Amino acid sequence: MDGLSQVQARIAEIQARFQPSAAQSTSSSSGDWASVAAQAGLTGTSTTGSSTLATASENAVVSEAQKYIGVPYLWGGTDPAKGLDCSGFTKLVYGNLGIDLPRTSSQQATSGTAVASLADAHPGDLVFFDYDSARPGVDHVGIYVGNGQMIAAPQPGESVKLQSVGNPAVIRRVLPETADPTADSGSSTLAGVPYANLFTSAGSKYGIDPSLLAAVASQESSFNSGAVSPTGAEGLMQFMPSTAQGLGVNPFDPASSVDGAARYLSSLTKQFGSTDLALAAYNAGPGAVSRYGGIPPYTETQNYVSAVTRKAEAYS
């Protein structure tokens, strides 16, 4: 397991431990977080897995930001072992990539260069908001990841999460225009898609189109690695516990989940002979596809196959 996967696995473990305490008060939640973060070895130091800072690129910023999903909000927080506020989160992410940002969101809003509109925004751009009517100017910041979404530390009682970007008041690009254009070149068609590097790696390993894996993740969990469905499906790729166990997958670890999904879809494609039937089996189970000799006559499954196919085409 590489350094990034190790960090993601630790974050997933922390998220799983922390989620049951989410309904507790802010003070007790902070205590619980400090405890599990300490157990997992999460500290305020760089988590790049090396004493050398990672190369700053659009995909690198998105990947770095994803590591902190699940860290609780803490006003003034700059240490992920304790909690992060919005600008503490952005400063930490960029600091781990060798770019020093000012401490507050209002100061960060003067960094880099202006981006005219969301239509012109790139993954890794900083998006700023004016939510406090009692105080003029910027008071919130997040990291744009593409597809109308950002990762941010929202407010007390919540955690760093992937969410809709809405309508930012200011957008700034702090990455140099000469940032490595070849970084994650294999996932260029997935630029800005969360976990693009994982989809590309697993797709290459098992012969599955990375765009299809991204589409499945989008349809299943909206790229939420901590998602749990009403029926009990878990993680980024929404494995039922029994399926995850059979595949040896940790559904809350994005790297493990994507790898397992690619391996499973590869097996289903070989078993049924087509991508559509593999997707139907992923949704309804291989038994249902075998029983009906094709896509089962379930509205949910038929809509699922169509939706994933459309999204995969859009990502290609």
Rank of each mutant, 00 (worst) to 15 (best):
L53D: 01
E64F: 04
L92G: 09
A134F: 05
S111D: 14
A114P: 07
G95N: 03
Q108E: 10
A119P: 07
A37W: 10
C86L: 00
G146I: 03
H122W: 11
Y131L: 07
G124R: 05
S117H: 02
D139Y: 03
G49M: 12
Y68F: 15
V61T: 05
A54V: 00
A121P: 11
S117Y: 00
W75P: 02
V71M: 12
V61W: 08
G83V: 04
D132Y: 03
D32T: 15
A81T: 07
G70R: 09
L101C: 08
W75R: 08
Q39G: 10
L92T: 11
V36P: 08
V61N: 07
G112S: 11
Y144V: 02
A134R: 13
A60Y: 02
W75H: 06
A56P: 15
G76P: 10
T52R: 15
V93D: 06
Q39M: 09
G44K: 05
S105Y: 04
L84F: 07
Y94V: 09
G98L: 02
G31L: 07
I143R: 03
T104F: 06
P136K: 08
S87Y: 10
I151L: 03
H122L: 14
C86M: 00
G41S: 03
N96L: 05
T52E: 15
A34I: 14
P102A: 14
L84I: 10
L84R: 11
Q66W: 13
F89N: 03
V127E: 06
L74Y: 10
Q66R: 15
K82L: 15
D120K: 05
G83Y: 06
L92D: 09
L118C: 05
S106L: 01
G146P: 00
Y131I: 00
D139R: 01
N147S: 12
S30R: 12
F128D: 01
S51P: 01
S133P: 06
L126E: 03
W75Q: 09
I143K: 04
A40E: 06
G70P: 07
G70T: 11
G124H: 08
S46F: 08
E58K: 11
P136N: 09
Q39Y: 10
R103L: 14
G44I: 11
